[in-house]
Computed example of a mutant assay.
Amino acid sequence: MPLHNRISRQELKDRIANDPTPRTTISFYQYFAIEEPVLFRNEIYRALNELGVMGRIYVAKEGINAQISVPTENFEALKAYLYTIPALNGLRLNIAVNDDGKSFYVLDIKVREKIVADGIDDPGFDMANKGRYVNAQEFNELTNDPDTIVIDMRNHYEFEVGHFEKAIEIPSDTFREQLPMAADMMAENKDKNIIMYCTGGIRCEKASAYMLHKGFKNVFHLEGGIINYTNLVKEQGLENKFHGKNFVFDQRLGERITDEVIANCHQCGKPADTHTNCVNDACHLLFIQCEECKEKFENCCSQECQDFIHLPEEEQKRLRSGIDKGRNVFNKSKSRLQHKMNK
């Protein structure tokens, strides 16, 4: 059996769009030592592929990080398989808050140097020395103390559409930039209670270990991140201290947590929190667009891109040649023209 996909991605997207099979979107991670990441990757690929799993999984010597969907009827079989792996026995599986089953369309498992790119090269850093977990109730109780500091360990575009009350944003584009920035910003608060959070828990768990490594004393991290917090709040009837939408890294691009819209359209400034990618293949900027601007600009981020998509296809291909979009994400701290392609 081939250990990778051989069907075109467009065909796979069409298949999942038209497939009525109920699917459940799940995320999970675990930091543990994997001596042979490639062998481990191949073993789990065979097992998950047989269960109809789709999604994105990173494997490294430090552990596993997964965002996947599975046919709902195979959910228990998936859990049973994962629990046969000793380090994953009893693993928490974060079930998506808003889920249409169309989050992924292919199974993609990659071996990486790390499951979260952190930029840490200090041999003394140890993930075993991490902050204390807090669940939803404990998080609410701790944050009722005005001296508790809440730090958001997600990217700026995630924070923009939704975050916890009184959360501090670390204004950076990457996690590797955030870690030293968070330590520097909190340098005068080493003895205070600091709670770190992220989408599903993987980034804030590593961030909590980093802060302890830098000499902070009372560091906590939200168990299971925003996803698990939201599910527990609903199950236990607790106060919800998260406002807005939770950005997710799949085709949904967001889970609605509350009805509040705390962000604005990047084109007209009206309240909006729907992320989209510019339809221009030479751009694909990730940005927030309201319904009015979506219609006006035909799913494009600008007039320039709208003009571009109406050029003859051969002309578009010629102009796209050699363009490196990189991490093409709208950043309000930069000029709106910086992302434009060179014509």
Rank of each mutant, 00 (worst) to 15 (best):
I95V: 15
N140R: 09
L253W: 02
R6P: 05
I44Y: 02
R256M: 08
K217M: 10
K332S: 14
G269H: 11
Y133W: 14
V279P: 00
K334M: 12
G244W: 00
L238K: 07
I170T: 01
D191P: 04
N42W: 05
L142V: 10
Y105Q: 04
L39T: 14
M186N: 12
K241D: 10
I7V: 15
R203V: 04
C265V: 11
P123H: 10
Y229R: 04
L39Q: 14
G237Y: 06
D307P: 01
E313V: 14
V219T: 09
V53T: 04
I26S: 01
Y197P: 01
F159E: 00
N5W: 05
K214A: 03
R203I: 03
Q236A: 14
F164E: 00
D100F: 05
I57H: 00
G326I: 02
Y133E: 10
H275V: 00
D121N: 15
V111S: 07
I120R: 05
H221K: 12
H266T: 08
I115G: 01
I64R: 00
G254K: 05
N246G: 03
E298N: 13
Y133G: 06
I257L: 03
C300E: 04
V248R: 01
C268Q: 12
F75L: 15
E314F: 06
R336I: 12
D121C: 12
G322C: 07
A96D: 04
N218C: 11
R56E: 05
G201K: 02
N140T: 08
P2V: 12
P37F: 04
N331W: 12
L88W: 06
N280D: 13
Y197T: 03
Y157E: 04
E138M: 13
M196G: 02
T230E: 03
P37N: 06
Y45L: 07
